[in-house]
Design a protein around this nucleic acid. Structure first.
Lengths: 230, 230
DNA sequence: CAGGATCCAGACGTGGATCCGT
DNA sequence: ACGGATCCACGTCTGGATCCTG
C-alpha cells in the first residue's frame, strides 16, 4: 500500500529516545514557518478552527506514528509527545490535555490511562502569545521527562480522588477545581454532546464527556525542574 | 442550520404509513434512471464499488431519515426500508442483510435487534439481473409487510439457535448453513478485520464481525404471500 | 448457488488542543 | 485566570448492500 500522493513531507519514526531528543533539539529556536515549509504545509491564519495544528505539525516533523490511537506517539520507544504553549512570559499558558475519562476506571494508578500517558513525555515548548503571528512563533528547548517521585505521589492522589467521584457518579460535585496537579474537565465538540455511561449497577446514564488535564502550575514546575526558567 | 448547497434533491419524511406506501406505489414500473434524474444523482457504471447505491437512492426519494443510525429508516412511523434485488426470473437474487451481530445479545426475541428491523418493513423489489444496465432497471410493486405468525416462529427459533452459538462462543461451528430463514455470515470491509468481543466471563477475544441475513428462500415467500409471483 | 469476502458513504469517537466569558 | 465550552482531523464503525470463487 505505497502512498504515492505526497500530502506533506513525513519523517520516519525515531528508533531510540536519543534519536528523538536529538531531532527535537534541532528544532529549538526554529519558527513554525520553517517547519511548516519543510513539511509542505500551509499555516492557518488562526488556531481558532485549527486547535490541534501545532501538535500535529510537530508529530509529523518528529516522525510520530501519526494518529495511531490508544498508542503512544512514538510507539517503538513508548514516548508521548506534548506541545507546551507558552505565554509572553514564556510560562505555560494553558492546561495540558492528558486523555479522556474512560468508561471503566483502571483498578490502580500504574495501570491507569493517565500514568501510561505521563510516564514518559517529550515536552516541546512553543511560543503561543496571541501577539505573535503563528508563522513567527518559535520552538523552545525540548524536555524528555518522567514524573519525579513527589510529583507522581500527588498525581496518583489526584487520580484516585477524581476516580472515586467518577466511579460513584458524583458528577454534580466533580468540578475542575478538584485535584492539585490533575483536573477533570469537559472534553467534547460542544456541551450538548452526551455520552452513554454504564455504572457499577449496570444502569445507563447520559453524562458530559470529560478529560483529564494537567494544570499550568504543574507544567510550570516541569519547566523549572528542567532549569528552563530563570 | 439551513443547507444551502443542493447535493441531490431530497424528499421530506412521510408522516404516515399510507403516505409512504402511496409514494412507493408511484415508483412502481419506473426505471432507476428516472429516479436518479429526479434526485440529481449520477448513475454508477457498476455496483461493484457502489454496492449500497440503489438502497441509498430509494432512501432519498422516499424521504428516509438519511443515515440516522440505530434507528428505523422512517423514524416517525417506525418502518424499515429494504430493497429486494430480483434476478432475471423476477425472484430474489441475494440474501438480505438485516443487522450486525451486537456485542451483547438481547435477552429475548421481541427485544432483539433482528425483530426491531423486521417487525415492519417496506420491501421495494428492484430488477438486478446483470444483463440489464443499471439505468434501465425498474422498480417493482412495493410490499408493506410484517412477519406472519408462522414466519415469526421460525425466525425466532433461528435467532435463538444462532444467539446460543454466538453467546457460547462456538464460532468454529457457526456457519452460514445454520438457520432456516435467518443466517449469520461475515460482515466487514475485508476478512482481516477483527472485532474485540468480551465474553460472559469477561474475557476478550478477537472474532470476525458478523451480520444476520435473511435467506432468499424467505424473501421469495414474502413475494409469494403478497401475490406478486405467478 | 450460496457461503464467505468485500466495497462505499456518512456517522461517530478519539486525540490533537485552544477559545472565551466571568 | 481558569473553568467550562468548543473546534478540526482522521481512524473506526455502521448501515447500505453486492461480489465472486469453488
Amino acid at each position: 500500500m505505497a502512498k504515492t500522493i505526497v500530502k506533506g513531507v513525513t519523517t520516519p519514526p525515531p528508533q531510540t529516545e536519543a534519536e528523538l531528543l536529538q531531532r527535537a533539539h534541532h528544532l529549538a529556536g526554529i519558527s513554525l514557518n520553517e517547519i511548516a515549509q519543510q513539511c509542505n504545509l500551509a499555516i492557518p491564519q488562526s488556531l481558532q478552527f485549527k486547535k490541534g495544528w501545532v501538535g500535529q505539525l510537530l508529530e509529523q516533523i518528529l516522525g510520530a506514528t501519526a494518529h495511531s490511537k490508544a498508542k503512544p506517539d512514538f510507539e517503538l520507544i513508548d514516548v508521548e509527545l506534548k506541545t507546551l504553549p507558552l505565554n509572553h512570559k514564556l510560562l505555560p499558558k494553558e492546561s495540558t490535555f492528558v486523555c479522556t475519562v474512560p468508561q471503566q476506571m483502571a483498578l490502580n494508578w500504574r495501570n491507569s490511562q493517565v500514568w501510561k500517558k505521563l510516564k514518559r513525555v517529550l515536552w516541546i515548548p512553543v511560543e503561543a502569545s496571541k501577539t505573535i503571528p503563528i508563522a513567527e512563533r518559535r520552538i523552545g528547548t525540548p524536555i524528555l521527562w518522567s514524573p519525579g517521585e513527589k510529583q507522581e505521589t500527588i498525581l496518583q492522589q489526584d487520580w484516585q480522588e477524581l476516580c472515586e467521584m467518577l466511579t460513584l457518579g458524583q458528577y454534580a460535585q466533580l468540578t475542575a477545581r478538584h485535584g492539585t496537579y490533575l483536573q477533570c474537565r469537559p472534553k467534547a465538540a460542544h456541551s450538548q454532546i452526551l455520552k452513554n455511561k454504564i455504572d457499577q449497577q449496570g444502569q445507563s446514564h447520559f453524562i458530559v464527556p470529560r478529560g483529564f488535564y494537567l494544570r499550568t502550575s504543574f507544567t510550570t514546575q516541569v519547566l523549572q525542574d528542567a532549569q528552563l526558567l530563570y
